[in-house]
Design a protein around this nucleic acid. Structure first.
Lengths: 148, 148
DNA sequence: AAAATATAGTACTAGAATGGTTCTATATGA
DNA sequence: TCATATAGAACCATTCTAGTACTATATTTT
């Protein structure tokens, strides 16, 4: 399948949710908004803090906000924070490999790895939360027509 | 990490090995050449046969060969055979998702999925086995110089 | 015809990875 | 001082994966 871990997937959801504004969001709030378990969301947010994608405010009325502008945060950042560096095969990241001398495929794997890295790098949170089909509020138009 | 399963990785190694010629290779032979356990190689070859990337010859002196020319077999084919279809998140392949109406990220995930699919599609076995730095046989050159 | 060699397919087991929870400590606001 | 939040570590259970074993079948060799 070649699938992201669930935590990475969740992480992207959490980040996308928080990208909507600069408010402080508690773990409880995020969890209920995304319909996820509070401890899980809490764990994810802690990991994101450690990786400096999110900043936390301690104490009552505390919570989390994005550490940077949504445009400055890529999916690669989030996936990296949750799952560690992307390496599609063992040999595509490891510094050495026992079979290296006989193996001609390693370079190719590293190339493929780069392409994937790049694909995730190019998508920022801003693009992630952009609605696919923009919903047009027709009420304003109708009002204007009525007033004509 | 976003990593291929080991079986998919092994599968690529096995296919790359078999791409070197059109001979019939037994599981035992492949296993010893790649320094892997015979039952494991055998399992992988069976999966590749079921997915029509490899054809088998039954009986004594039997074994396996590629079903198509190496140029006509991509890494995507092999990974697909071993790991099933690529879908980086659950929602990037599934036909529906409970949260679909509120979710704006799905389209993006599907796009990222396509890029990865494409990257694996573009690499054929031929490229995979191409030596990175071509080893130049200098003996011929030296011979010629000597004969001048 | 029998023995040897090889694949086909299924089922099973052990181990690792992952997801998710819980518990204790600490910080802040009312 | 109490209620509300995060920080961090440890823990458990389930799922997934890798690898093995076993039975059946096909083909070549003797």
């Amino acid at each position: 399948m070649l699938r992201l871990s669930k935590l990475a997937d969740y992480g992207c959801q959490v980040m996308a949710y928080m990208a909507s504004d600069k408010a402080i969001h508690s773990a409880t709030e995020v969890a209920s908004a995304l319909d996820m378990a509070v401890p899980t969301v809490s764990k994810i947010l802690k990991m994101l803090v450690r990786n400096k994608l999110v900043v936390s405010v301690l104490g009552a009325k505390g919570g989390y906000t994005l550490a940077r502008m949504p445009a400055e945060i890529s999916i690669a950042d989030i996936v990296g924070a949750m799952d560690g560096p992307i390496s599609i095969t063992e040999c595509s990241s490891e510094t050495s490999c026992a079979r290296e001398s006989q193996c001609s495929t390693r370079g190719k794997w590293q190339g493929i790895n780069l392409i994937i890295q790049d694909a995730l790098d190019k998508v920022s949170l801003v693009e992630m939360i952009k609605p696919k089909h923009q919903v047009i509020d027709t009420s304003a138009i109708r009002t204007r027509r009525a007033s004509v």
